[in-house]
Design a protein around this nucleic acid. Structure first.
Length: 101
DNA sequence: GACTTGACTAGAC
DNA sequence: AGTCTAGCCAAGT
């Protein structure tokens, strides 16, 4: 998760797959309950680009703000994955998605 | 050990 | 494009 570049997002399923556990997306979410500070937890969204309700302190408002600060804009409450999804630590693209800044 | 729950997902309508 | 369903598997009760 720490490898997710600024201005990009990944899904729970992706992270699970990178770790070698393709069917364990829920475990990623479970693990994030104890997410140590300093990790970009806000760059993790579900497969539809939505922010989970269980998001940390306060609400998903925090996550939305953090994402927007990185240039990840939400459309209709979702991150457009076609644009901001990160393709993984091994297949990472050279150029980040276009975002203001 | 048998339910229930959950920061999920792919597929069907 | 939205909503529902079945599948998932570790943790909690």
């Amino acid at each position: 998760m720490a490898k997710i570049p600024r201005g990009r997002v990944a899904t729970y399923g992706q992270i699970a797959a990178w770790l070698g556990w393709p069917r364990r997306s829920r475990m990623v979410g479970r693990a994030l309950r104890n997410c140590p500070s300093g990790l970009p937890w806000h760059r993790v969204v579900n497969a539809r680009g939505e922010i989970s309700r269980r998001a940390a302190v306060g609400s998903m408002l925090t996550q939305r703000i953090l994402l927007q600060q990185e240039g990840v804009s939400l459309r209709g409450g979702r991150v457009p994955l076609s644009r901001f999804r990160w393709h993984g630590p091994k297949k990472a693209r050279e150029h980040p998605a276009r975002y203001g800044g």
